[in-house]
Simulated assay, not measured.
Amino acid sequence: MKISVDISMYPLTEQYCQPIIAFIDRLESHPLVSVQRNSMSTHIYGNYVDVMTTLNAEILSVLEQIPQTVFVIKLIGTDREKAVIDACN
């Protein structure tokens, strides 16, 4: 099953930019998911198991380093990647 995820990360620290960028960079290093950045959130697309495995690993890594981090995650059980690309063209 393909899914689409919209995720925002809010480290509750003064130095919040670098942890966000590092988190997105690590998401992009996973070859089984597709990641699109924008100014408000990050979108992740792929098979449910691949996306959730990726998120599980990377969110755990962040929370171990910066426990005062809030994640806002929205999931939909369809592949919205093409719809987003078409809407932007």
Rank of each mutant, 00 (worst) to 15 (best):
K2R: 06
S4Y: 05
V5E: 07
D6P: 00
D6A: 09
D6T: 04
I7Y: 02
I7W: 05
I7T: 04
M9V: 12
M9A: 07
M9C: 10
Y10L: 10
Y10V: 06
P11M: 02
L12C: 05
T13Q: 14
E14A: 01
E14D: 13
Q15D: 11
Q15A: 01
Y16N: 08
Q18Y: 10
Q18W: 02
P19T: 04
A22W: 07
F23G: 02
F23C: 04
I24G: 05
I24M: 11
I24D: 04
I24R: 09
D25M: 10
R26P: 04
R26N: 03
L27S: 03
L27T: 01
S29F: 04
H30P: 09
P31S: 13
P31Y: 03
P31C: 09
V33T: 03
V33E: 09
S34L: 00
V35E: 03
Q36Y: 02
Q36A: 05
R37D: 05
R37Q: 09
N38A: 03
N38C: 15
N38M: 03
S39R: 09
S39Y: 10
M40C: 08
M40F: 14
M40R: 00
M40A: 12
S41F: 10
T42H: 02
T42N: 01
H43Q: 13
I44Y: 01
Y45Q: 09
G46S: 07
N47P: 04
N47I: 12
Y48L: 15
V49N: 13
D50T: 01
D50S: 13
D50A: 13
M52A: 00
M52Y: 00
T54Q: 08
T54L: 08
L55V: 03
N56T: 03
A57C: 06
A57E: 14
A57G: 07
E58V: 05
I59H: 10
S61F: 00
S61E: 11
V62G: 05
L63F: 00
E64A: 05
E64T: 09
E64R: 10
E64G: 06
E64Q: 07
Q65E: 15
I66Q: 09
I66D: 10
I66F: 02
I66K: 00
P67L: 01
P67S: 12
Q68E: 15
T69K: 07
T69E: 11
V70W: 03
F71S: 07
F71I: 00
V72C: 08
I73Q: 13
I73Y: 09
K74W: 11
I76W: 08
G77H: 05
D79H: 00
D79S: 08
R80Y: 12
E81G: 14
E81K: 15
E81I: 06
K82S: 08
K82D: 07
A83F: 05
A83V: 05
V84N: 08
V84Y: 13
V84F: 15
I85N: 08
I85M: 12
D86G: 08
A87Q: 12
A87L: 08
C88K: 13
